[in-house]
Nucleic acid binder design. Structure first.
Lengths: 120, 120
DNA sequence: AATACATATGAACGAATGCTCATATGTTCA
DNA sequence: TGAACATATGAGCATTCGTTCATATGTATT
C-alpha cells in the first residue's frame, strides 16, 4: 500500500468479496451513460408534462404548445429530445405532426416515480 | 375569433372532450415538479453508479469514493442530494457513515430504465 | 408558383448543475 | 484536551440545459 495523497481512507471497509460482488453488478460504462441520459428526459417539468399529456391520446405540436402554455419552438425542441430517447414517436398527417408515447415503459416509469414521491 | 399573435395554430386539433380528459389526468404543478426532481437524481452517471453500488450492500462514503474514482467531496455532495430525494438513507458507525438504498423504488425504477435502453 | 400554415432547427443567453478546493463538523483514541 | 480520521458543506468555476428569437423546411391550397 500507499503513496496516495487523496483525502479518502486508504483501505476498504467492506470485505473484498463484497467489493467483487458489488462491482460485478455495476453495468458497463456505456449503459450507465445511456441510462442517465434516459432518466434525464424525465428530469424536466416541461418534458414530464408533455409525456403526461400524451398518456391518453396523441397530440400535435401546436396543441401541446397551447396546453402547456409555452412556445411552439420549445415544445419542438423537447419533442426532438424525447424522440431521440425513444420515448415518443410521431406520425405525419398533412401539415400537422402527431406525437404519442412510444411504449409502455414511459407509463411504468412515471407511475413508479409518482408512487415514490407520494409515499415519502 | 381573436387577438393572439403567438405562432401556434389558433384552434385545437383534438376534440374538446379529449382535451378535458387529457388535462384531467395531468397531475398538479407541485407534483410534476417533485417528480422531475426525483428523476433528475437518476439523470447523472455518478449518482446512478452510486445507486448501483448500493444495490447489494451498504457502503461508506470513502469506499464509494474509491470504487467510483472520484473525490470524497463529490460523493458526499451527491449523497446529500440522494438523501434529500429519499433515495438513500444512512447510519452512523463511529467515524464512518454507511449509506444504503432507502426503498425498493430505486431498484424498480433502475430496472425499468435498463429494460428500456436494452430494448431500443 | 405563390401563399399560408405547421413544424424543425441553429444561435445566443441566462439559469442550473457537478466538480474541486478549502475548511468546518463530528467522532475516536491517546 | 489534542491529534487523527471520516464526512459535510460553502464558494467558485466550467459545463450543460432550456428557453427564445429568427429562420429554414415541409405540406397543402389556390
Amino acid at each position: 500500500m500507499d503513496e496516495k495523497q487523496i483525502p479518502v481512507c486508504d483501505f476498504l471497509h467492506v470485505h473484498e468479496d463484497t467489493v467483487q460482488q458489488v462491482l460485478s453488478e455495476l453495468p458497463a460504462e456505456e449503459r450507465l451513460y445511456d441510462l442517465a441520459e434516459l432518466f434525464r428526459m424525465f428530469g424536466d417539468t416541461t418534458r414530464i408534462r408533455i409525456l403526461y399529456l400524451l398518456f391518453e391520446s396523441e397530440l400535435c405540436v401546436c396543441d401541446l404548445a397551447k396546453l402547456l402554455g409555452v412556445t411552439q419552438s420549445a415544445v419542438s425542441h423537447q419533442l426532438r429530445a424525447l424522440k431521440d430517447a425513444k420515448l415518443v414517436r410521431f406520425r405525419r398527417a398533412g401539415k400537422t405532426v402527431f406525437y404519442s408515447l412510444d411504449d409502455d415503459h414511459v407509463r411504468s416509469i412515471l407511475s413508479l416515480g409518482m408512487e415514490h414521491i407520494l409515499e415519502k
